[in-house]
Design a protein around this nucleic acid. Structure first.
Length: 596
RNA sequence: UGCCCGAUGGUGUAACGGUAGCACAGCAGACUCUGGAUCUGUUUGUCAUGGUUCAAAUCCAUGUCGGGCAGCCA
């Protein structure tokens, strides 16, 4: 199969532009490097939940493997037991499965439970129990590589304290100084390193360091630490180890062990690349070496993307958890009602470069609207009810009107909605003193009730405080949808719900979490001082059409004229639904209002 | 005053020495029983200065601006 045909979407839609990493891989495949094979990996550290920035990396790594008939390993980059946890590995597994499901699940490579060789198996349709790869599965092999480096004179045990190590390292514009322990004999280094492993020394007293160049302009080449002592249990390896390899040492070797060909990471690792190569090149490694390539991480407007900051929001209970629908986490977006398809399309739209830009939040909103418009069933629900009594309808009047489920998809069919003498309409669809260009209800004006009659406002009832509490209206009996004068034009159509038939439900309106586009790059100010106080609004007495009573958790709908909503995956139950607003519909009336 | 990387409309990107294109956003209009969707049109751009070349967003030089690097974090 040609790589070209594989990289074309099946639909015949124009191919996504090939970014620079895609081009590099294409050249390698063409020239037969790595035997024409492509192996990528997605290597999160299990110290937090995945966010939409990880989604970009997932789409990149799985997409590359998919385009070239390769595989992508899901690997836990778990070399620091003090901050990692199984809760996170489970959430990562779930989020990845959800995001790539139906798109690249046959690209996902896992490994046999308990296997530590780095051999992968495709996750889909496997008959043996599989689990993600773990860098910690290679601690044995990585330890042996460390011994090899020592024997070759390329690594030494250093007794400098952390503070001293920092001092000896120098600074970016000033060379470092060599450690007094740099010239120990191979035998002494071997002995000391083995005793480090045996647990003879307390935390922080010794490290294993690469012997490179303390005067290098690249700080990461100034005898970087390869191993540190940590007498703590590891979530995956238990108490087998009290020394743990650093990222730089473990990552390139994990890539090598798994047969990764293209190791794709974000820009901040660019300066680590010489070290990645140095380690692999100073070991006796028979297989072709993996290479590292870097791209710009995603920044998205009106949110933050660092795991540290997201963790802070969770711990300080500013949000309800990692899956709070306002969070940019994959689990939060899922709970908010985002689809995997929309997220993938978003990742395709933003591209892959080495430029650190900020992606406009409207791109994400477009992606989800575009997808939900095609797929979601339309229903009617009134968020802020205003009672309407239709005076020319008899008491007890009831009829069931036909409504279209999805104008974008005729196969979705139709349903019946109940109509009666007392209905609710949206408060904001009525203005006692209509603004310019306001086409909806006002005293004496007419609107179309969606799928029903043309309604005329003939009276306004106010409560003691002067607030409009009820509308008195009449209906044009010939104007029923499909009826004699159904074609009569009125300026607006509004949604409604029959009072007698409505179900009452809680609806949560979400808005951006922050009120400025870049909350974490405001000079001298904490990102939390830019939280949007209106990021969540809970409406408890919304009136919804009765078909929604049995909505199942995670069911998605378009509430006509309002937006897309999704039954909450945690708190919604059939019979008592709770809805989250995923995103509003585009609203040109709101825009019009903002102008004035 | 170290090293590495980057710079194309408001935003994100494409163009690989040969007509600066796409998407989002914006604006204007058409259509519409969702002020949705759809359709049409449209404003706005190669960081600067030199050089190479018949021809430069693209190659070279210098400068400017932005990002990254001094964890026993990843």
């Amino acid at each position: 199969m040609s790589t070209d045909s594989q990289s074309q979407p099946a639909s015949g839609a124009p191919a996504a532009p090939h970014h620079f990493i895609h081009q590099i891989v294409a050249e390698h495949v063409q020239s037969g490097r790595y035997g024409g094979r492509v192996g990528t990996r997605f290597p999160p550290e299990p110290n937090g939940y995945l966010h939409i920035g990880h989604a970009k990396s997932i789409c990149l790594n799985f997409g590359l493997a998919r385009d070239f008939g390769g595989t992508c390993n899901l690997r836990m980059d778990d070399t620091n037991p003090t901050r990692e946890d199984v809760e996170y590995v489970e959430s990562i597994r779930q989020d990845v499965d959800w995001l790539i499901g139906g798109w690249a699940d046959d690209i996902l490579a896992l490994k046999r439970v308990g296997d530590t060789t780095g051999a992968g198996h495709l996750g889909k349709g496997s008959s043996v129990p599989l689990e993600p790869f773990y860098a910690s599965d290679y601690f044995g092999q990585i330890y042996d590589f460390a011994l090899q480096l020592i024997r070759k004179g390329h690594a030494y045990v250093c007794d400098l304290t952390p503070e001293e190590t920092e001092r000896y390292r120098g600074s970016p514009d000033r060379p470092g100084m060599e450690s007094p322990f740099r010239n120990r004999t191979v035998e002494e280094n071997l002995d000391l390193f083995q005793r480090m492993r045996a647990g003879e020394f307390p935390d922080g007293t010794r490290t294993l360091r690469a012997r490179i160049d303390m005067t290098s302009p690249n700080i990461w080449l100034r005898d970087p630490v390869l191993y540190r002592i940590r007498h703590v249990a590891h979530h995956h390896t238990g108490t087998q180890w009290c020394i743990y390899p650093m990222y730089d040492f473990a990552h390139c070797l994990s890539d090598y062990i798994e047969g990764i060909t293209h190791s794709v990471c974000t820009l901040e690792f660019e300066v680590h690349r010489p070290l990645y190569d140095w380690i692999l090149e100073h070991l006796d490694l028979p297989k072709e070496l993996p290479r590292q390539y870097e791209f710009a991480r995603l920044s998205l407007g009106y949110t933050v993307m660092s795991k540290r900051k997201l963790l802070q929001l969770v711990q300080e209970k500013i949000v309800t958890g990692w899956d709070d629908p306002r969070m940019p986490t994959i689990s939060g977006l899922r709970r908010r009602g985002y689809t995997p398809h929309a997220l993938r399309h978003f990742c395709e739209m933003i591209g892959v470069t080495k430029y650190n830009g900020v992606t406009d939040a409207s791109v994400l909103e477009f992606a989800i609207r575009d997808d939900l418009n095609r797929r979601s069933a339309r229903v009617m629900g009134v968020l802020r009810p205003l009672k309407v009594v239709i005076e020319n309808l008899p008491e007890g009047h009831e009829e069931w009107l036909e409504a279209v489920n999805n104008p974008e998809d005729p196969s979705a069919g139709t349903r019946k909605v109940p109509f009666s003498r007392v209905i609710y309409v949206e408060q904001e669809d009525f203005m006692e003193f209509p603004a310019k260009k306001f086409f909806r209800l006002s005293p004496g004006s007419e609107v179309r009730l969606r799928y029903a009659y043309i309604l005329k406002c003939v009276g306004v009832v106010k409560d003691a405080s002067g607030r409009v509490s009820e509308l008195r209206c009449t209906v044009d009996p010939d104007s029923k949808s499909g009826g004699a004068t159904a074609g009569r034009k009125v300026k607006a159509t509004i949604h409604w719900v029959s009072a007698a038939h409505a179900i009452e439900a809680e609806v949560r309106l979400y808005d951006r979490l922050f009120s400025v586009e870049q909350p974490d790059s405001q000079e001298g100010k904490d990102f939390k001082s830019f939280l949007n106080p209106h990021s969540l609004e809970v409406l408890s007495q919304c009136k919804l059409e009765p078909s929604l009573r049995e909505a199942k958790p995670s069911d998605r709908f378009q509430f006509e004229r309002l937006g897309y909503f999704c039954a909450d995956s945690r708190e919604s139950t059939p019979g008592k639904p709770v809805f989250n607003r995923t995103v509003t519909l585009r609203d040109s009336w709101a825009k019009e209002q903002q102008k004035s």
